[in-house]
Simulated scan of single mutants.
Amino acid sequence: MAWVVGTAGFLGLLAIALGIVTLRTGWVLPTARRDVTRPKLHGLGALLTGASALLQSLLYFHILPSVSWEVHFFGGNAFLLAGLLLIALSQLLPLRRNPDHADPSGA
């Protein structure tokens, strides 16, 4: 069981790193680049999702002080669902259009 939680912790660190890169530079992984319309939301969602996985693994290995199972369960799920919601919104919301720029197809 420890290797599963350790793998989740590693993937959480990876998601946090990708979220930081996306927030700082706007770069998104090539597999998701076509679908993401709002990189900032995508980066914030990746940070929350990665934080959820990392916190769950740190609590499992007793690196962080122990909390009740309710806080552990519901807090981790809240972070995870909030991150997934932000990632979904980053793909579903339409592109922002700047009204100051002229329409390239119109007059």
Results as ranks from 00 to 15, higher is better:
4 V>A: 08
5 V>L: 14
8 A>V: 12
8 A>M: 14
9 G>D: 11
10 F>A: 15
10 F>T: 11
11 L>E: 03
12 G>R: 01
14 L>K: 11
14 L>P: 00
14 L>T: 07
15 A>K: 06
15 A>F: 08
15 A>Y: 02
16 I>F: 02
18 L>Q: 09
18 L>N: 07
19 G>Y: 10
20 I>N: 03
20 I>K: 05
21 V>H: 12
23 L>G: 07
23 L>Y: 10
24 R>Y: 05
24 R>C: 06
25 T>I: 10
25 T>G: 10
27 W>L: 10
27 W>T: 11
27 W>M: 12
28 V>R: 08
29 L>M: 09
29 L>Q: 06
30 P>S: 08
31 T>H: 09
32 A>V: 03
34 R>N: 09
34 R>W: 09
34 R>T: 04
35 D>E: 12
35 D>N: 12
36 V>G: 05
36 V>Q: 09
36 V>A: 06
37 T>C: 01
38 R>S: 01
38 R>W: 10
39 P>H: 01
39 P>N: 04
40 K>N: 03
40 K>F: 05
40 K>S: 06
42 H>T: 04
43 G>F: 07
43 G>Q: 08
43 G>M: 06
45 G>F: 04
45 G>C: 04
48 L>P: 00
49 T>Q: 08
50 G>L: 10
50 G>P: 07
50 G>T: 07
51 A>T: 13
51 A>D: 05
54 L>R: 07
54 L>D: 02
55 L>W: 00
56 Q>V: 15
57 S>G: 15
58 L>S: 06
62 H>R: 14
63 I>C: 00
64 L>H: 01
64 L>R: 01
65 P>E: 03
65 P>V: 04
66 S>A: 11
67 V>C: 00
67 V>I: 15
68 S>E: 15
70 E>Y: 15
70 E>I: 15
70 E>F: 15
70 E>C: 10
71 V>C: 14
71 V>M: 15
73 F>V: 07
73 F>D: 13
74 F>T: 14
75 G>N: 15
76 G>R: 12
76 G>P: 13
77 N>L: 14
77 N>A: 11
78 A>K: 13
79 F>T: 07
79 F>N: 10
79 F>W: 14
80 L>H: 06
84 L>D: 03
84 L>E: 02
85 L>H: 05
85 L>F: 13
86 L>W: 05
87 I>P: 02
90 S>W: 09
91 Q>D: 06
91 Q>A: 13
92 L>W: 14
93 L>K: 05
93 L>Y: 07
93 L>I: 00
93 L>S: 00
94 P>A: 05
94 P>V: 00
96 R>N: 00
97 R>H: 00
98 N>R: 01
99 P>S: 12
100 D>R: 03
100 D>H: 02
101 H>L: 14
101 H>W: 05
101 H>C: 06
102 A>K: 11
102 A>C: 06
103 D>G: 03
103 D>K: 11
103 D>C: 14
104 P>L: 05
106 G>A: 14
106 G>D: 12
107 A>G: 12
107 A>T: 14
107 A>F: 13
